[in-house]
Simulated scan of single mutants.
Amino acid sequence: MGEVVKRAYKYRFYPTPLQAEQLNRTFGCVRKVYNLALDARTRAWAVHGQRSTYVQSSAWLTEWKRTEELAYLTEVSSVPLQQALRHLQAGFAGFLGQAVALPAFQVQA
């Protein structure tokens, strides 16, 4: 059998101004959804002693998109927004399993 060759490639992305604007909008919406879900899940635990699931967080996202204040969330793809909720779920699962610290709010860099 032949030898396994491992390769790595390095890519650089030069977005157009329009692409950069869309990326900034998407990242901002992801940050907003993550922080909203973190706040809602933390409040649900502190006030009611209830754990929240990814499914509940996803339902909250749908409700948030229907509000006038957060209607701009519909302007970006739902895939990265859902992924933010999955990352938050993983963070809470690690915290409840005592493996990691409580997830923290994201701030703009």
Rank of each mutant, 00 (worst) to 15 (best):
A46C: 11
S52D: 05
C29M: 05
E68T: 13
A46P: 07
L38V: 06
N35A: 06
T26Y: 05
A40G: 04
V33P: 11
A40F: 10
T26I: 07
Y54H: 02
D39Q: 10
L38F: 12
G28S: 10
T67D: 14
Y72C: 04
R43K: 14
S58W: 08
V30F: 05
R51V: 03
K65N: 07
E75P: 01
C29Q: 12
A44R: 13
F27W: 06
Q56H: 06
F27Q: 09
Y34M: 01
G28T: 03
L61A: 09
K65E: 00
W45H: 13
T67H: 14
L61H: 00
S52N: 06
L36T: 06
S57I: 01
R43I: 01
L38Q: 00
W64Q: 02
V30Q: 09
F27D: 12
R25N: 08
Q56P: 08
S52F: 09
T62S: 15
L36G: 03
A46F: 07
G28Q: 04
W45K: 10
T74F: 04
Y54P: 04
W45G: 01
L36M: 11
K65L: 06
T26A: 12
L61W: 07
W64Y: 09
R41W: 10
S78H: 09
A71M: 10
Y34S: 00
G49A: 00
D39G: 05
Y54R: 01
C29W: 10
R66T: 11
T53R: 05
T26R: 09
A40R: 11
T62G: 13
Y34T: 01
E69V: 15
T53N: 07
C29N: 04
E68R: 15
N35T: 06
R43L: 12
L36C: 02
L73G: 13
V76C: 02
V76I: 10
W60I: 00
A59I: 03
S58E: 02
S78D: 11
F27G: 05
T42W: 00
L73N: 05
S57E: 10
R31A: 02
F27L: 12
Q56D: 12
T26K: 00
C29G: 10
Y54L: 04
V55S: 10
G28N: 07
T67V: 03
A46Y: 05
L36R: 06
R43Q: 13
G49L: 09
A71K: 15
V33G: 01
T74Y: 02
A71V: 12
Q56I: 11
A40Q: 04
V76E: 03
G49Q: 07
T74N: 14
S52I: 08
L36P: 00
R41K: 11
V33D: 02
L36D: 07
L38M: 09
V76W: 05
A40L: 10
T62A: 15
L36S: 04
S77A: 10
S52K: 09
K32Q: 12
A71D: 13
L38I: 03
T62P: 05
L38R: 09
V79Q: 02
L38K: 08
A40K: 11
V47N: 01
H48P: 09
E69C: 05
T67G: 15
T67N: 15
V47G: 01
H48F: 12
Y72E: 15
S77R: 05
R31H: 12
H48E: 15
V76A: 05
R66V: 04
T74R: 15
